[in-house]
Nucleic acid binder design. Structure first.
Lengths: 243, 243
DNA sequence: ATAAATCAACACGTTACGTGCGGTTCAATA
DNA sequence: TATTGAACCGCACGTAACGTGTTGATTTAT
């Protein structure tokens, strides 16, 4: 027989928590003293341990109450459901991580907080990737879209950093002469970055270029808006003409 | 100028939420009508959009309040801190996922809910892996411990399932004759599983065997308690003697 | 028997709002 | 201009899982 204090020490759960579990009917003590103090026996202890295990597995107290009186079928369903929840949360966190990394690196390259970049990144990760790329449907085929999504998912921190550096550089020099050496250099570093990501898939690159040119909404796969695209176009056209 | 309803529609945030943000001083409307209705201008809208972006990035409203009036240094720190938080949560979820998968598969192999298995699995994932393997310090060297931790982290769902099947089978037959064909078969399926995981590192296997034999606490790397170990020992000893 | 420790029971605080209410103000129509 | 319906304000209570603190009763140790 344990008083509530002993039980608390034995299990590491605070007295208040046991209070609360009593209050919501999760564990009622099996007996009481004449004065009204709660006494827990070994069976109660076992029940508490089960509660703690289930809590660790991420169930709410309400779910635990149900599970502890339920059949095996309830069990299996509950666990599958919980697994689904965990997987969704993992997806969300992985997007969140990328968004934070993006903002973090952008802070390194620019002296001020770049809000439009932040909006771009968060928008980019807000809805499901598939939904996001829906708008490119007119320009890219399914295979190409999947290739981009796949690549996006596999981007490492280093990749994000490099992209942001290249695009950040360009954004700071949008107004320079398209035929200047600096402009050509910027365009080339962008091109090499693209090549590193997509390889030499000329058809894909061409389709993407067309998509980016035509879409009103600025943000593309990475925080590359129309400003940047237009700059690149100017440089490439100038280069063509020089030949 | 937007009334609170228009702003709500424009941004997708509920009126109550805007109410609340006003209440805690996160966005005060820049002006009001004579009757007291709140009016928001473009600057207010921008502030709201920033708030939403930060909220998506996982900050609390209190943090957002601080960030929005702070300097760039605050920014960088906040983001790093948030990244840390995300990474910890990712770790936790990955353990949680494994625990749930373990219980799920154990439900497939046994007809009833196996609480001791659940305790084993949750204990296994509760504290940090390094802490957990601390107790093996006397028997395994650092390199070996790291190898096990590494292997544990890389276990796929399929691996977990196979382990649980093998161990579950053994647990259901703890009392059979160690020289019976069934016993030998069980021991061999266990051995092949071990080999699949650890390769042919004889020294590691021997050290692990010793550790498992000597530790009072039953749970080892997978829900394999002393019962199982003892069974395996009996079979192997019987085999030796038969030779 | 008395002091010290423990306990029960209650209340309020936490986060980010949802839901609902009565009363006021706004915008559009008769 | 008067009316009416929609929008709005301010307030209050509810949520999940407890933490913190209080007061008064009970148990334990001396």
């Amino acid at each position: 027989m344990y008083t509530i204090g002993k039980l608390s020490k034995k299990t590491g759960v605070t007295v208040r928590t046991l209070d609360y579990y009593d209050e919501i009917g999760l564990i009622k003590p099996s007996s009481k003293t004449d004065g009204g103090h709660r006494l827990y026996n070994d069976e109660d202890v076992m029940r508490l341990e089960r509660i703690l295990a289930l809590k660790y597995m991420g169930f709410t107290l309400e779910q635990i109450k149900e599970i502890l009186k339920g059949a095996t079928t309830t069990w299996y369903e509950s666990i599958q459901q919980q697994l689904e929840l965990v997987k969704r949360e993992q997806k969300r966190l992985s997007m969140l991580e990328k968004a934070l990394l993006g903002v973090s690196h952008s802070l390194e390259f620019e002296r001020e907080v770049n809000w439009s970049l932040i909006f771009g990144i968060t928008q980019l990760f807000q809805q499901d990737q598939e939904d996001l790329f829906q708008q490119y449907d007119d320009y890219l085929n399914e295979e190409e879209i999947n290739k981009i999504i796949d690549m996006d998912a596999q981007m490492t921190e280093e990749d994000i950093k490099e992209w942001l550096k290249v695009i950040g550089d360009i954004k700071h020099n949008l107004d320079i002469d398209p035929v200047s050496e600096k402009a050509v250099q910027l365009a080339e570093s962008w091109l090499s970055q693209v090549e590193k990501m997509f390889g030499n898939d000329e058809a894909l690159l061409e389709d993407m270029r067309e998509a980016l040119q035509n879409l009103k909404e600025g943000v593309a796969f990475y925080p590359m808006d129309k400003d940047v695209i237009d700059f690149l176009e100017r440089v490439f056209i100038a280069k063509e003409e020089l030949k």
